[in-house]
């Protein structure tokens, strides 16, 4: 295992076949912390991320906002292991830099990316990775389907589901392995307004239950403020705002506190290239 593990015994984790039954009965592991040190990402001559330093404590819900093309999705892809950084280190837990192998991170994409030829239950089982074939895999997949309210539809094809339901299955697939860090790449971007709100409440509920570390990339400032403990803003490849949102949950949409914060962030986002550090924290 490439990351330091603080909750489970190291030898059990390092074994070639994890003791799945024990893992199934045990309460879910809490979130893993994430540290980025001097991370740079460049595509050819174009530098997308410049020298990002960031520490996210385990279990925190962090939202990243920014204009399109600012590098927020690139940052998420680096954390999710979909791309390699040009320079710098990405560390999970308090251990050494991450190498290949079973990752503590699960990524949820903007599109559901369900396999159309596998039924809904089988799609959820994909999230179990190598544990897929163990005895309790099906039970666990069923349990997760139950949590998203689609347990009756496990045998159906994904093509019969609505957009919101598909995204819920994608969430179940991400959750089923009980990841310690869940990275969301605008997962609700393609949904209609009502389904979005429903899914936001659902996400919050799941996060409060499982307490994984959450990294949410979004262009919707209100979504970030409703869900996150902390909002980061990325401009031109650097983090230019790091704002703790210390409001009680569940947050009421349209409350004055949220509206004021939203205005503040939107003003900053919409302002052109001038960057006097008015709201630096």
């Amino acid at each position: 295992m490439s990351f330091a593990d603080t909750s489970a015994p190291a030898e059990a984790r390092a074994a070639p076949l994890p003791d799945f039954e024990a893992q199934f009965r045990a309460p879910p592991a809490s979130g893993v912390s994430l540290t980025l040190r001097g991370v740079v990402k460049a595509f050819g001559p174009r530098t997308i991320l410049r020298d990002i330093d960031l520490h996210i404590p385990g279990g925190q819900f962090v939202a990243i906002v920014g204009r399109s093309g600012c590098g927020k999705s690139t940052l998420l892809r680096l954390v999710g292991g979909l791309d390699q950084s040009t320079q710098g280190q990405i560390v999970f837990g308090e251990g050494e830099p991450r190498t290949a192998g079973e990752s503590p991170v699960r990524v949820m994409f903007q599109e559901p990316r369900l396999l159309p030829w596998a039924n809904i239950l089988a799609n959820v089982e994909i999230g179990l990775g190598a544990q897929r074939k163990t005895k309790l895999a099906r039970e666990r997949a069923r349990e997760t389907l139950h949590a998203i309210g689609l347990e009756e539809r496990g045998a159906e094809w994904p093509s019969v589901l609505s957009g919101g339901q598909k995204q819920r299955v994608a969430l179940a697939r991400a959750l089923v392995s009980r990841p310690r860090l869940l990275a969301f790449d605008e997962p609700l971007g393609a949904l209609d307004a009502l389904t979005r709100i429903e899914m936001q409440q659902f996400l919050e509920k799941i996060w409060l239950r499982d307490r994984f570390t959450a990294l949410l990339v979004t262009h919707d400032v209100m979504e970030a403020l409703t869900l996150a403990d902390r909002v980061l803003m990325i401009e031109n490849g650097s983090i230019t705002l790091d704002l703790a949102i210390d409001l009680p949950r569940p947050r009421r949409r349209g409350s004055v506190d949220l509206a004021l914060l939203e205005e503040r962030i939107l003003k900053r986002l919409l302002r052109d290239e001038t960057n006097s550090p008015e709201y630096a924290i």
């Binding site: 979909l82 990524v107 697939r173």
Partner: peptide, 12 residues
């Protein structure tokens, strides 16, 4: 290719 990326990211 998005499905392939998903598969790789989910440890296939």
């Amino acid at each position: 290719p998005q499905l392939l990326e998903m598969g790789k990211s989910y440890g296939m």
